[in-house]
Design a binder for these strands. Structure first.
Lengths: 67, 67
DNA sequence: TCATAATGTCAAGTATTTTTTACATAAATC
DNA sequence: GATTTATGTAAAAAATACTTGACATTATGA
């Protein structure tokens, strides 16, 4: 499923996928795939993304509770 | 660097590396390597570990601040 | 309309995670 | 002493994260 929290946090910093990719050292396609929810990034990449966006792992990557 | 928080959380549930491996669906060596800090697990595996141990991503995997 | 920026996606290749198998050591129990 | 449990480690193979390059769509602005 999509990671809308990541998308929102990125928008909150006014960064494009490409900007975030460069800041985290991965390709644009990787950021796109993570937001799309296609896959399963490594924890180090998640941490790098969190640091750029000023968020924590729980805020961006902990699964949302669906009551 | 070693993930001592993970090791402690596992000990707190009285689980061996092998127990945790089975509960999270990976090999014992993978758990060992993560605790040893050798590498970079995927976020889904981190989440699975957190769920078994009753912790969050931030508690087990957010880098410790070294003042 | 034309150009550009942002995003989605696909296919093929590379890099790294993870498995499997195996052997080693230390501690606990019989 | 022998056996079992827990852990460390290593090498080859399998699975998958990630890259590169390419092409498409949509939206924005000159």
């Amino acid at each position: 499923m999509k990671n809308l929290r990541l998308k929102a946090a990125r928008a909150g910093k006014d960064l494009s996928q490409d900007d975030l990719a460069k800041l985290t050292g991965v390709s644009r396609q990787t950021i796109s795939a993570i937001e799309k929810g296609d896959y399963n990034p490594t924890i180090n990449l998640c941490i790098a993304i969190c640091r750029v966006l000023g968020k924590t792992l729980d805020e961006l990557f902990w699964p949302e509770e669906n009551t």
